[in-house]
Amino acid sequence: MITSKTFGSRAFDTVIIVVLLAVSLATLFPILHTVAVSFSNPAIASSGTITVWPKGWSWNAYSRVMDDKQFFTSLWVSVERIVITLVLGTAVTYLAAFPFSRETRDFRMRNIYLWILLIVGSFNGGIIPNYMNAKNLGLFDNFWILVLPYLFNFGNILLVFNFWRNLPKELDDCANIDGAGPWVKLITLYFPLSLPVLATISLFTIVNTWNEYFQAIVFINNPHLLPLQTYLQQIVVTIDPTRPEEIGKGGSLSEVSNQTLDAAKIALTMLPVLFIYPFLQRFFIHGITLGSVKE
């Protein structure tokens, strides 16, 4: 594109750069602030003067997290939940995507099933029918309630089969001529080709499973089955700093020391997301537009 280098044009660029810098800083500030608080001296943290750099450097909050047994129990539950959801969920998605990637004349029930999944799936009975249902299924206070409802994900199935439908038709024809049945095609033909789309849905699954906290609030009482985000929700959020009786106290010792401790737990819980963020970034734009061209 041709861009004239007039004074007005330069000024325009400057304004844009300043605004975008401000937006970026505003985005990073709360996150950096929390990390800074977690490394600060509790007494200084409570004065509210910390910006994005720790004051009175201290590992105290992190060494206190190390003593928190529940934190590690919950971390383990989250890890187990992610691994199982990832393996089973990807398998369910991958298998279901194959029939849906067929032409209607090949798989006759295709459109009927898709519409049923879409329409019935859009109807959410609401929180209470789901609660009753899980109770009836005996999944109350059971690890599997954290996994089973998340294995079927219509969006992921869509993503995979639309990806396949964009592959050259000739591939499938060749496989037919060689006498490959559905299972052979599924495993030997489509699997190597699907690695990008499988990476995309895996990353989505990891982040979503890691971030999910509400299921355990409703269905889990046993502290040994509490995922990390639910545990964090209970310690950071349920303790309400805006309750009238606590206003103005501002400086009681327990509250002061909890501020840095909570910040440390928040920072540690953010860490895995930050860690896979570069990968997410690589795949998710791809993921959004993946399979968006339909014939």
Partner: peptide, 24 residues
Amino acid sequence: HYHIMLLPVFVLFILFQIFPIYGV
């Protein structure tokens, strides 16, 4: 074979989408 491949989805769908509807 296509139906076999869809079986897990159907089971999950019935358990967690269809069943709760009667609770409505």
